[in-house]
Design a protein around this nucleic acid. Structure first.
Lengths: 349, 349
DNA sequence: CTGTTAGCGCGTTCAC
DNA sequence: GTGAACGCGCTAACAG
């Protein structure tokens, strides 16, 4: 008994004793408010609520979970919270979930299979009521299995090839098309693409979007007009931009990068050979990172409603918890073109 | 009974039945591994572990929590996950906690009293074993009360004035002193401070650090050498920098800003009047935001080990859970000076 | 070393 | 409308 006495919170029984009623009456009085009109006399109900308040009573979620099988907790799997993409998404998730009294359990997987497995175990044994999955590289078979067993799962920014799963994603293709369209409207005709890693879905989608929009605009694309970065880094961006700029004799007038970091690499490459943006080459980034408007020139970029992605994903989760057999929804959120100095000039030619 | 059947996980009793032993034996076999040498026969233990594995058994944390009073869950209160300061801290917390099988429950308060209260309630009713508090503006009396009731609490980047509480903070004063010392060593003698909001502890501490280091270096400071921003924004930075640059007839050679955003404002102010950094004025930022090395010139700044702050805070929490009466620790983590182009030149004079 | 018993706090029967 | 009893899954106490 040397155990340190933790805060003794009032239990449902303490309330019952003070109110002079049976514990189960208290339980009913506190049960989901708008439920049925009167499971309990409204006078005694009022008294119970008052006493509960006075005693600072809080239902024990663990006990409730054990009894009902609902933890009011949702697991969120993501590669790395430190990736600036995720904090707004998580905020959106939390805000929506909070409205319904749900809470988020975060798991960082680092895109590591072993760690992912461990984290998933941890979430599962905590009895999460649903899963939000934003990890990119995993095969997903385990999630399909869980889903089949009745666990509501919502995907973020990914889809399974072989099965329809509820998901919320940004419309990357639409985004890159807006970018290409934008510079095209400014008069640019030699529009190159600094593509991202093709083993990432983002890199692949944005590349496809570039091809699609160029084709829609009736413009030819050949291999010399695209360079593939192996990473989303400014160094890789610089390397690729230098390659693009050095390849052909007629210089590009615009480069659409698959990512803001790559766009920064373009800035550096232009700098290195004495060219200027936007006077010589217009640059468009992708993601609208927080620093995009701080660059010189400020970077035109494609902004995604990340907070909304989280919010909508939470919405989907709640819907599926409420009605597991509801039709599966796949939501694509449209991006927004943010025009800044890096595409500041209309071409005179 | 139309209720959707959730994944029926194997219970400790299922394992017991298959293994032909009593449930409590299974419980013991699965109990903290390195505990005592042999609470259970190692053969049967091995068999139980094997069967548990086969049955895909996961302990039900809710049940364990109900029984033991320990949820293996820690609540983390912060103003806004979207503030880039926090993701690395949260990562640090999660990584350390994960080592001991603890999990983090996040609560965003938005520095709003009401919301903070609600979030705290939510965490408490989920039976968090401890609290990590990184909210800035709240009075803290409720936390002191909780602490008095035996709830382990660790503060991040703040201290209570009136009572000693375990905490982990960055040494802001040391940081700003390094900044001042750095430009002083480069030969600068007219060193100004673009201070942050003085109603924030960060702004106050950094201002104090500036004064302290200037004094240590034997340099006079008068009011014209400091301008106080009302916000940490580049606009405010620009406004203050313009004021500083316009005030006296002998121009400053260096400005130490209380924050990277303010430093960016300095860039813009210099730009506007045709001066150059670092040739005309050296600039030092504070925080080493992710974009600092992307600016032109790249910004010299003070980097804080945010991840370590989280990691150490988790460490402190675990220590206090293990031994609540252990002496209170207050940890200050030292910053690091990151030298870049914005202070690239030694002064010739 | 292992089986037995009891109960953590709550919600849900089923009687009255 | 309310009281009584039971059990969710697990672990701590006590036997044997």
């Amino acid at each position: 008994m040397t155990d340190t006495q933790r805060t003794k919170r009032a239990t449902i029984r303490d309330v019952a004793r003070v109110a002079g009623v049976h514990p189960s009456t208290v339980s009913r009085a506190l049960g989901r408010d708008g439920q049925t009109i009167a499971l309990v006399n409204s006078d005694t109900r009022a008294r119970i609520l008052r006493i509960a308040e006075e005693l600072n009573f809080r239902p024990d979620v663990a006990a409730r979970t054990l009894k009902t099988g609902q933890s009011h907790t949702v697991g969120v799997l993501l590669p790395d919270l430190t990736n600036p993409l995720f904090p707004p998404i998580v905020r959106g998730l939390e805000d929506r979930f909070a409205e319904d009294g749900f809470v988020v359990l975060l798991g960082n997987t680092d895109d590591d299979a072993l760690r992912g497995e461990l984290v998933l175990e941890g979430l599962l044994s905590r009895g999460v009521d649903a899963l939000v999955v934003a990890t990119a590289r995993r095969s997903g078979t385990q999630f399909l299995e869980l889903s089949r067993q009745g666990m509501p799962i919502v995907l973020i920014n990914r889809v399974f090839d072989d099965q329809l799963v509820p998901s919320v994603a940004t419309d990357e293709v639409a985004g890159i098309r807006m970018a290409v369209q934008h510079v095209h409207a400014l008069g640019h005709r030699k529009i190159l693409h600094l593509a991202g890693p093709q083993d990432l879905s983002t890199g692949k989608n944005r590349y496809r979007g570039y091809l699609a929009e160029m084709s829609s605009l009736g413009m030819q694309v050949d291999d010399s007009m695209v360079c593939f970065a192996n990473l989303y880094s400014s160094e890789e961006g610089k390397r690729c931009a230098e390659e693009l700029l050095g390849r052909s004799h007629d210089r590009p007038t615009a480069i659409v990068a698959a990512n803001d970091m790559l766009a920064i690499g373009c800035y550096q490459a232009l700098d290195a050979i004495g060219l200027h943006c936007p006077a010589d080459v217009a640059i468009v980034g992708f993601n609208d990172a927080p620093f995009s408007d701080l660059l010189s020139p400020p970077l035109t970029s494609i902004r995604f409603p990340h907070y909304q992605v989280g919010f909508q994903a939470a919405q989907l989760v709640l819907e599926r918890i409420a009605n597991p057999s509801a039709p599966i929804k796949v939501i694509f959120l449209p991006p927004e073109l943010v025009i800044r100095g890096s595409t500041g000039l209309a071409l005179s030619s």
